[in-house]
Design a protein around this nucleic acid. Structure first.
Length: 650
RNA sequence: GGGCGCGUAGCUCAGUUGGAUAGAGCAUCAGCCUUCUAAGCUGAGGGUCGCAGGUUCGAUCCCUGCCGCGCCUACCA
């Protein structure tokens, strides 16, 4: 409702500005600094003042006189040096909120692809991966909440160096056969086992550089796809992917399709892209210097001001031994996402989630029942900011091939890394150098096995939440308490990862991540549980929720909303749509999280101020019940966009 | 060296694209539970928005320079 009125006012003013002064363009809308100024403010007069050489205050007066009456607006006021402040018609506003939102037809439109998670399938997921997946998943929910058609992809690099390293570890350090690895997958916490093995093989390489030949040989075998080594690579990667999907499912995160690098190789995606790149002269064969024998993309293609023209800043796409780098494969993959490669994967059903959702994975044999994937109009790649250079190269590749629209619509949804606070390192028994101790944070390293595993963190959160729940509800059976604790733990985690804006480094700290008070997910849940509780209690007393539309007339609403506190609270609650729009436009899930917190704060204040069930006056009681139910609905809706469930009690 | 980003309260962070008296959480202090759950509410203290210039009616926000910090700048991904 709020954003409808915002739009209406902006349009009314824009029209008057054009007819009075001949200036076109949208009229800027903002929120007044103080609530006593009204609900909406327009600074348009300031912008016009310069062009028109008239005082802002005069312009504001002329403008508001010209705009006159607008449906739903009670008054326009001139304030300060030239602000136009808008006061809404409270009765009108509330009446439209009762009527409910206009039918949101399931608008479909162009397909938006969001690629996130993309964890190397060679070890357990850690907190850095959680930030990626939670940001990506929340952005998907935000897009879907605004009626967009979204496909979620999770790219699986199952033929890369990291998988190869773990297989080298099994083969050369552990001396395991294919069957022995299969047995380990069945019998152990396999992703944790690989976490340690990956750290071991990495340090082994450091001490025995000759062993790097194992890696080269392994990479070659895995890429060829034949033999026992390749088979081991496949079962290791597949097993780890399963564990990742399980971990993410705990957070309510699912995928539609898993494109795998093995198919990019076997179905010759790269070969096709390579021909295209050569034909359109996007890359060339370097004949001298350090990159001699490589196919490279010149730095001028992806750097604005290439300081040093020449080989120094060009990017190798194909190595001198003929193998393709990750970026090359990524260009092919990005082309496929837009349906520009002229090739497609085949798919088979890979995983069915407990809620029935299906995730399909790429394969090289046709399955006629498989749905169609790819062919997006816009693509968001959720990848941390350290890879922005590589993302630039991929986009430059598209542009060099003449796909300008696709290049425009390739969006690097970047975010900063999750590091560890020095205090957390100490808690985990990680030894730090003196230099590291002085730093604000320490980078996570898979190679060193330095990091917090996602499942460990989730388990820890659940145990802590369970203690809290038990201290309040000893009478409830354990499974019920655990289910509530799980919802609380996930809320704490998701909110923690979302409360920081994307370009802020998170220095992960157990103390902060495990907090359930203040600006946290559980705080928002708590407000929702309380709203529900009031409505439950009403039913327990044998009373029914009134038929609001019949009981609350426009006049009754206006009467009740003369109370400034009520009006401000309702106003906040009614801004969910504006909040989602703003968060989508700015591409910032943190804005959504912040709104959820403000909404919960508003309800907590309402809860404290008004004792709904004890209210003696019938009209007022009906009004307060409506407020409660309205808050409940908005809180639930907002939490759903954040991927947070509401527990039965807490 | 070059590219990107950051610097705002004791700590962790917001700041709606240049607007009215710079906000929140944590921490500290003082209050509020026989009431619809205190994972809550009310209040107090706490600021040279890194520094110096510039642009204009107006700058935490835009421009320039400097200081400090981080990431990237691989024939790893």
């Amino acid at each position: 409702m709020f954003h409808i009125l915002e739009k209406r006012i902006a349009e009314a003013f824009a029209a008057r500005i054009e007819s009075l002064y001949g200036v076109t363009g949208p009229a800027q809308i903002e929120q007044p600094k103080q609530s006593s100024f009204g609900e909406i403010a327009l600074p348009a007069a300031f912008q016009l003042a310069r062009q028109l050489k008239k005082p802002p205050k005069v312009i504001a007066g002329d403008l508001s006189a010209a705009v006159g009456e607008v449906e739903g607006i009670a008054a326009l006021e001139i304030a300060g040096n030239g602000y136009v402040n808008v006061r809404l018609d409270r009765g009108y506003y509330a009446l439209h909120l009762i009527a409910g939102p206009p039918d949101s037809s399931a608008a479909v439109g162009e397909k938006i692809i969001v690629e996130h998670t993309n964890i190397n399938p060679n070890k357990a997921a850690h907190i850095g991966h959680l930030r990626n997946a939670i940001l990506g998943d929340t952005f998907v929910r935000m897009l879907r909440a605004t009626g967009r058609n979204v496909e979620v992809q999770n790219y699986i690099d199952n033929t890369g160096v990291q998988v190869a390293d773990v297989v080298v570890g099994f083969k050369h350090l552990e001396k395991k056969s294919l069957d022995q690895v299969r047995a380990l997958i069945a019998a152990t916490r396999f992703d944790y086992l690989c976490w340690d093995l990956y750290a071991r093989i990495s340090s082994y390489y450091a001490e025995h550089p000759d062993a790097l030949q194992w890696r080269r040989d392994m990479l070659h075998s895995i890429e060829s796809g034949e033999g026992d080594d390749a088979a081991m690579g496949h079962i290791v990667a597949d097993a780890i992917v399963k564990t990742h999907l399980t971990t993410m499912w705990r957070l309510g995160i699912v995928y539609d399709v898993l494109p795998r690098e093995s198919e990019i190789l076997h179905l010759k995606f790269w070969a096709t892209a390579f021909e295209l790149l050569k034909k359109r002269k996007a890359i060339y064969l370097e004949t001298e210097g350090k990159n001699k024998g490589c196919w490279v993309m010149p730095g001028s293609a992806f750097r604005e001001n290439s300081a040093l023209e020449g080989e120094d800043d060009s990017k190798v796409i194909v190595r001198s031994n003929g193998t393709v780098t990750y970026v090359g494969k990524d260009i092919a993959y990005q082309l496929w996402k837009f349906g520009l490669l002229g090739k497609d994967f085949h798919y088979h059903l890979w995983h069915t989630y407990p809620n029935g959702h299906e995730a399909w994975a790429s394969t090289d044999e046709a399955h006629p029942e498989a749905p169609l994937f790819g062919r997006g109009a816009r693509v968001y790649n959720v990848i941390d900011s350290r890879q922005s250079y590589l993302q630039d190269v991929v986009v430059a590749g598209l542009r060099a091939l003449g796909f300008d629209t696709a290049a425009e619509n390739s969006i690097h949804f970047s975010y900063e890394m999750v590091a560890l606070s020095p205090r957390t390192c100490v808690e985990m028994g990680i030894e730090l150098s003196e230099e590291d101790q002085r730093r604000p944070y320490v980078e996570v390293s898979g190679r060193k096995g330095l990091g917090v595993k996602a499942d460990d963190l989730i388990d820890k959160l659940i145990e802590k939440a369970l203690d809290e729940v038990t201290s309040r509800h000893e009478e409830e059976p354990e499974p019920s308490r655990r289910s509530a604790a799980t919802a609380i733990a996930i809320a704490a985690l998701r909110y923690f990862m979302l409360k920081y804006t994307r370009n802020s480094v998170i220095a992960f700290d157990f103390g902060e991540a495990l907090a359930f008070e203040g600006e946290t997910g559980p705080y928002v849940q708590y407000a929702t549980v309380r709203a529900r509780k009031i409505l439950h209690k009403l039913a327990e007393r044998g009373e029914k929720l009134p038929e609001f539309r019949a009981v609350l007339s426009k006049e009754a609403m206006a009467r009740q909303l003369e109370n400034e506190d009520c009006w401000q609270l309702l106003l906040t609650a009614s801004k969910a749509d504006s909040a989602i729009d703003r968060a989508v436009t700015s591409g910032e899930p943190a804005h959504m999280a912040r709104f959820a917190f403000q909404l919960a704060q508003a309800f907590s204040s309402f809860y404290q101020k008004f004792h709904v069930l004890d209210e003696p006056d019938p009209e007022r009681k009906a009004f307060l019940l409506w407020m409660t139910d309205y808050f409940r609905a908005q809180l639930e809706r907002t939490l759903a966009v954040l991927g947070i469930d509401v527990p039965e009690y807490m």
